[in-house]
Design a binder for these strands. Structure first.
Length: 448
DNA sequence: CGTCCACGTCTAC
DNA sequence: TAGACCTGGACGG
């Protein structure tokens, strides 16, 4: 699930798994993938990762060996570190496995120098992901919402005259020039926290924050003074009521806090993140296609700038095929679909509706709603409606049930393996996995 | 079987 | 503002 938090978790994952390991040889690319080869080759190198917004950089650093440095000069060894910039598209992520467990869609592979060697691979089922050898953070992407918060905020607030802010807030939130790291589920969760209708003009929502920030700066000194003097138990500082931009920072960080459960494709997987979601794909919420054809999830009013003909979407929320064992989570999922969706929303205020409406009436409603809307917006940071969570029937977690799980999954692996050779890797099938030793380049790993 | 949908960019009328 | 780029899961007939 590659939005900012997942990219960051990916970088943590890489650093954790690769710490202290020595990688060796050349970087291998699958044949089907159209991204460039990574022209890096070294007997001994290490891998480190960092993230910024929706990008990850892997740094491949040759490990110096003073002794034989000269002897090996002959070979075409990379002497300099290389940065490779990754964007994950819709399905990219990193995995570290044994060679035998090489995943089906491992499109870029880094091998360790271990005896049965292991592999760090960039897996990307849909191949929308990209990598760029000797790359840099993409120009035109803004500061990271998670780790460059101040400049992120500054970048938005000092550019509100940009016509991009004429658009609905939900669409602007996907603009990586200003919101590097926000993606489709985050925009829904963020707007939901403040109950901001998705189709309100972005500038309208953000204008207020400019003054707000300036006030803060003025008052800041006072505050710090106050804080230092009166030490009322709390740590102070954090007290600020959240606004849209601060939530663009804290909400993704919440996901990072969930940890690799949200990322590691191994186990319960999505269940944790899914349980965390309050809006995106949540039963009882509304959904509409935005002007770019992306589905926005929200609660209550859509706001005035709804695209003509926008239709509500159905959920087809995957349930990470752990096959077996989910006995009733399966039912839960079905519930999620829609028929029952009607049944449950009893809880919400009562102003919902929208859901299955048709375009025509919608626009009309929209104008009518506008007042309500704007009112809401102004009231937004109220922090009172903070907990509307209908929360009810999130999926019941799916606990792993380890025993069966492992066995089963192993079996699955076997199947995949055989399949893999014939299908995914086709051309590459020959060198598919174990004997991946690029004849020409250099003998490398297995030999020694 | 076919259709729709998916956590994202890109570039071409 | 549409497609294009891809694979695969869920669902409908």
């Amino acid at each position: 699930m590659p939005e900012g938090p997942e990219l960051h978790l990916a970088s943590l994952y890489v650093n954790k798994m690769c710490e202290g390991l020595v990688f060796s040889g050349s970087v291998e690319k699958s044949d089907v993938n159209k991204n460039p080869e990574v022209p890096f080759c070294c007997d001994a190198y290490c891998i480190k990762a960092q993230s910024r917004g929706k990008e990850v950089i892997l740094t491949l650093t040759p490990i110096k060996n003073d002794d034989d440095g000269k002897r090996k000069v002959a070979k075409r060894q990379s002497q300099q570190p290389m940065d490779v910039v990754f964007r994950f598209g819709m399905s990219g992520f990193f995995r570290f496995t044994s060679v035998d467990d090489l995943p089906k869609h491992a499109h870029l592979r880094f091998y360790t120098n271990e005896n049965p060697c292991r592999v760090l691979s960039f897996e990307d089922t849909r191949r929308f992901g990209s990598w760029h050898p000797n790359g840099t953070w993409q120009k035109d992407r803004g500061p990271c919402v998670m780790f460059e918060y101040e400049s992120f905020r500054e970048n938005v607030l000092s550019n509100l005259s940009d016509k991009t802010f004429d658009k609905p807030i939900c669409e602007v939130l996907l603009n990586q020039k200003y919101f590097n790291g926000i993606g489709n589920y985050l925009r829904a969760e963020i707007l939901f926290r403040l109950q901001i209708p998705p189709f309100v003009k972005a500038r309208t929502v953000l204008e207020g924050l400019v003054l707000q920030d300036e006030e803060k700066k003025k008052v800041k000194k006072e505050i710090t003074v106050v804080e230092s003097t009166d030490k009322t138990g709390k740590k102070g500082v954090k007290a600020e009521t959240p606004d849209l931009l601060s939530l663009c920072h804290t909400v993704p960080l919440e996901v990072v806090q969930l940890g690799e459960n949200g990322y590691a494709p191994a186990k319960g997987k999505y269940s944790v993140l899914q349980a965390w979601m309050q809006c995106y794909c949540v039963d009882g919420m509304n959904s509409l296609g935005d002007h770019n054809g992306r589905t926005i999830w929200f609660n209550g009013d859509p706001g005035p700038m709804v695209p003509k003909g926008a239709k509500s979407r159905k959920i087809m929320w995957k349930r990470q095929k752990d096959d077996h064992d989910y006995t009733d989570s399966k039912k839960a999922k079905k519930t999620c679909t829609d028929s029952t969706a009607k049944a449950k929303p009893a809880k919400k205020k009562d102003n919902i509706k929208v859901k299955k409406e048709n375009a025509t009436s919608k626009t009309q409603n929209a104008s009518k709603r506008q007042k309500k809307t704007t009112k809401k917006v102004n009231v937004a940071p109220a922090d009172e409606n903070k907990k509307p969570k209908t929360r009810g029937k999130r999926s019941p977690k799916v606990l792993p049930k380890t025993g069966t799980n492992t066995i089963k999954s192993q079996r699955v692996e076997e199947v995949n393996k055989t399949k893999r050779n014939s299908v995914t890797c086709r051309k590459s099938a020959t060198k598919a996995k174990p004997q991946r030793k690029r004849s020409g380049t250099q003998g490398g790993r297995s030999s020694k």
